[in-house]
Amino acid sequence: MPLTGLDLSAIWLTLELATLTTVLLLLIGTPISWWLARTRSRLKGPVGAVVALPLVLPPTVIGFYLLVTMGPNGPIGHVTQSLGLGVLPFTFAGLVVGSVFYSMPFVVQPLQNAFEAIGDRPLEVAATLRASPWDRFFTVVLPLARPGFITATVLGFAHTVGEFGVVLMIGGNIPDKTRTVSVQIFDHVEAMEYAQAHWLAGGMVVFSFFVLLALYSSRRFKPALG
């Protein structure tokens, strides 16, 4: 058996983390993207920049600040403690919070592009056909932005699977709780278990390749508004 029990639990944990993160990101990212796509507010630039920060910052920087703010003396830490949730660092929940921040731009940007591409016209048409704002969003925007949602889901999931720095900083390295595949590979390499590392690392390469292949070949011609 090339994979140990610890390897399998790391894989399972990684999938759990990526799924939960992606679901949360779609819920949080959709309104943020919609706002960014439609607003004329001066805050558009700053908010867009903050969302995009994880693209350029080293994961250690994000991990560090999350650690500080979620720690016993940080503002988020105070809130979670007063709610009786304890502190988030070195827990699975903390890992989810960190991943949401870290993968945010990979969900928000495709959605924002998709929303912007729809433009005003279909919404105006729907309004003249008596559709209320919510109705317009669900019956016009969501179907027309479907390619954007597919891209956002795939990228958000894949990017969370592939994170390492943030996980190590705020998750520590606790088997079954915060030890994801990328950390497990790191451990194997540290312990000179190259064969074990190969199985996981190779698996990641194959996984990532097929995810991206599926994504790029699903991008068919999208008809403009008729």
Partner: peptide, 29 residues
């Protein structure tokens, strides 16, 4: 607001919803 005004609007380009068939475009309104 527009959606509460009982009017019909024909735009310069027909602006049919591309994800709906003709029948469902008609039924939308």
């Amino acid at each position: 607001p527009t959606h509460k005004r009982p009017l019909g609007y024909v735009f310069q380009e027909a602006s049919l919803f591309p994800h709906l068939s003709v029948r469902r475009n008609l039924e939308y309104g």
